[in-house]
């Protein structure tokens, strides 16, 4: 099911004018910011399809900036977010891309800063709902409607079972998960959507696993249902 609950239909509470091009854009920006794990210094945003044609009219540029600033969808500062981003030292640029993307509202965000770089691709599928389809070349398909854990790790037999075992031991229920890898026993990304938020100590344990290079947490559920 692409739409999982009643609040993906009634909601979100948001600043207009478009749920797909404003609220959805903000949500993709916010997911990207959380995956990146810190405030990016440079955000290069490439827009495709309907995003590319209509982003200024819909305030999608403001919404992406607001997402990268980690604002909520109904934050009245959204209208000033490009200025606010610039003030915090975040440089954001927009270009139009041409590409064979399957969804008409797709965006590619290249975030850099602090010696790191992430490339994240997502689509806005309507009513403020999104899917993230690519993280640093890993093919994924997650929605961030529940707390989402990304574990970047080296592939080896049993590693996924160990991660899920740790979650189970911490009382965390898994709603959806997927693994993609660059090659056999090579770099892999495991994405796990959970029903509960992860504790700091649980994240620390997973981060400390030998094969784990990095983890990301996208938990946008803090303010009730989002």
């Amino acid at each position: 099911m692409r739409f999982k609950d009643v609040f993906s239909i009634i909601g979100p509470s948001m600043v207009g004018p478009s749920s797909s091009h404003t609220a959805g854009a903000l949500r993709i920006g916010r997911a990207a910011r959380r995956i990146f794990g810190q405030r990016p210094e440079i955000a290069e945003i490439m827009l495709y399809g309907s995003f590319a044609e209509t982003y200024i009219g819909h305030g999608s540029d403001l919404a992406f900036a607001a997402g990268l600033l980690d604002f909520e969808a109904d934050d009245m500062r959204i209208r000033d977010s490009l200025l606010l981003a610039e003030e915090t030292g975040m440089h954001i640029s927009f270009t139009k891309g041409k590409g064979p993307f399957s969804h008409p509202n797709t965006v590619r965000l290249k975030l850099s800063g602090g010696g790191r770089e992430d490339v994240i691709v997502g689509s806005s599928i309507g009513g403020g709902n999104i899917v993230v389809t690519d993280v640093n070349g890993f093919e994924v398909n997650f929605t961030v409607r529940t707390p989402t854990l990304l574990v970047f790790h080296r592939d080896r037999p049993g590693i996924v079972a160990e991660i899920t075992g740790l979650l189970g031991g911490g009382g965390i229920n898994i709603g959806f998960m997927e693994v993609d890898r660059k090659s056999r026993l090579g770099d892999a990304l495991t994405v796990i959507e959970t029903d509960e938020s992860l504790s700091e100590s649980l994240m620390e344990t997973i981060r400390g696993m030998q094969e784990v290079t990095r983890i990301g947490i996208v938990d946008l559920t803090a303010k009730g249902v989002v």
Binding site: I9, I10, G11, P12, S13, M14, V15, G16, P17, S18, S19, S20, T22, A23, D74, M76, G126, G127, G128
Partner: peptide, 8 residues
């Protein structure tokens, strides 16, 4: 500020 029902 509005609520998307189902969209804005």
């Amino acid at each position: 500020r509005i609520v998307a029902t189902p969209t804005a």
